[in-house]
Design a protein around this nucleic acid. Structure first.
Lengths: 340, 340
DNA sequence: AGCGTAGCTTGAAACGATTCACGATCTTCG
DNA sequence: CGAAGATCGTGAATCGTTTCAAGCTACGCT
């Protein structure tokens, strides 16, 4: 007895399969007595509708917005690293938007691997998810158009190409703001700390910062490249930093985790932050405010970013053919605390 | 034209549908020339197999371990909070084990809400996932048996009941170890900091610690309950702590995030850690080692925990009827750094 | 030539739900 | 009393895939 099907429920309740289906999908079409009988049968048999069959029959989800109940759909949220608070915040924003509209979010992580990324997309495609929100690691146009022909909406986060919807933060501006702040508090020898693989947005931050700095007439910033963007690597960066000559008096870290590790180690080595070296992070994760030296940082509107991305995805789904790809760009914001 | 189906591919390649299916599933049965022709047709048409139909036909996945290619399946990993490094580490451990066996992980978050938790389970059930690994918020036996009859394997993480597989850490022991350490370094007035909603495991840690302390003849520890288990709340706890009289000289925090926030705030208020107040955390998250005051803590083998859970789930799936529920219990470990 | 075999291919029968054109009853009202 | 609606139910057709018994060739062997 492989599975309880609608047919057995029908037999048990003494009705036809069509009626059971109606109880499931349009209960108002069924007389109360019958409905109860069917429900009881469902209960007793522990019946669960086979979503595969349902979807097979239904085909590409109807244009939504029909009368009555919304078609609850699943969207995939693919991020590079579920351990990174930045990524999880973005994803939570997306999930919130999705939930608010009665949809669901499935999280997948690509772990910075193009292969895992591709596999995740495949999985979503096989499951016939409604759409994907993705912080891409290495997405080709081909992958995307594949998804598209499978009828899924695709939204890029933190990256963009003309023929897909995307939501991103203006990282160049973020870099500029950070550099301008460092310059503004009188720092002249600025270093940049980042990690490999260096995500596109970090490159942009770096470019923005670099330009601002050289345009202001200061020396091109030294760049310290670590193995990852974690606090541990930030610690390591502290030592490298002190070996630089001339020793920098301002540091711009590609993310807060690096900054926190860096500051902690610097403090332990007797260097005062911000007096000796000012440090500015990027992201404004929760920990930034309650760090030993509260971190000055660039806040990304991450929840909003995820939220916007989800809105785009849902819109794309609703609009069908007439859809015009949109690119949302949010602006980051300087949060001044104590580290710079 | 709703979707490219196997039939159109067949027509285009001039073969029967059965052959196309074979190319997809058992390529070795098909002559090379035909195979190439079919593959070309697939390519040209941008065909993607409709997973719903496939699954509908296949029915409950065969007992795996068949000849040839493994049936790649998706497992759901439901955690309470994807923002919590503890949870994500466990989930990553699970994902690693799953991937190692050629399966996939879908992450869902319940956000501490029983409703979302239930919804997540429903979703997984509808998608006919192979199994669920869950850190439960509020799971009734009924929910579980529902999942079970739907043919999914269920593994509880960090909680247990006799009739389900589970993997957990011995939290009582963890509490005992922490308390014993605090006692061992001469602390006498110990406080416990936790947050609501207080997960079962935290209660166990507290119990273990309490017992050890009272059995050693010290006063029952004061308990500070915060609104959450975050660094921000740890900060708040610092102030409450100082108002206690007698002022504690040792604190056991329910997790590292609380401990880090607490220590940072204490330091800012001029209290020395560990000299004035020793603080011990729980979890050993990455940040613990690189915190301003490197944190002494109880390490949970989180990756292993997730890994074991995944192994259990996969085993359950493979064993079918003959399955015996197993409960894996891992032992936590004291990591001495500087905060206590 | 006759026969067995191996290697490919075929095509119809599932899988389990949804849909929809039709009946079957029951009301209501002229 | 009879006809026109309402209101409910029915059950066959259908979605796209996999499965599998059966058919077809070509080949080797006696």
């Amino acid at each position: 007895m492989p599975q309880t099907s609608i047919r057995e429920v029908a037999k048990r309740a003494g009705v036809s399969v069509g009626t059971v289906s109606n109880v499931l999908n349009r209960p108002d079409l069924v007389a109360e007595a019958t409905r109860d009988r069917v429900r009881a049968a469902i209960e007793e048999l522990g019946f669960v509708r086979n979503e595969s069959a349902r979807r097979l029959r239904r085909g590409p989800e109807r244009t939504a917005g029909e009368f009555g109940d919304q078609p609850r759909r699943a969207f995939g949220v693919v991020v590079e690293d579920l351990t990174n608070p930045y990524a999880t915040d973005v994803a939570r924003g997306a999930e919130a938007a999705l939930n608010a509209s009665g949809h669901d979010a499935l999280w997948l992580s690509s772990d910075y691997s193009a292969a895992k990324e591709r596999r995740s997309l495949e999985l979503l495609e096989e499951q016939r998810a409604a759409g994907v929100l993705i912080i891409p690691v290495d997405l080709s146009a081909r992958d995307i158009s594949g998804l598209r022909t499978a009828g899924m909406s695709v939204v890029l986060i933190d990256r963009h190409t003309p023929d897909v919807c995307s939501a991103q933060v203006d990282h160049v501006a973020g870099g500029e703001i950070a550099a301008a702040h460092l310059l503004g508090i009188g720092r002249e020898r600025i270093a940049f700390v980042t990690g490999v693989p260096e995500p596109e947005p970090c490159v942009e931050r770096r470019d923005g910062a670099s330009r601002t700095i050289t345009e202001a007439g200061s020396a091109k910033p030294a760049t310290l490249i670590q193995d990852a963007m974690s606090p541990t690597e930030g610690q390591a960066a502290a030592h490298q930093l002190l070996e630089l000559s001339p020793r920098p008096d301002g540091v711009f870290c590609a993310n807060d985790l690096l900054a926190i590790g860096l500051i902690n180690e610097l403090t332990r080595l007797g260097i005062r932050v911000p007096e000796d070296i000012a440090v500015i992070g990027y992201d404004d994760i929760e920990l930034a405010a309650s760090a030993a030296v509260p971190l000055t940082t660039i806040r990304q509107p991450r929840r909003e970013l995820g939220w916007e991305a989800a809105e785009l995805a849902m819109a794309e789904l609703g609009e069908g053919k007439s859809h015009q790809h949109r690119q949302v760009v949010l602006r980051p914001e300087l949060v001044i605390r104590e580290s710079a």
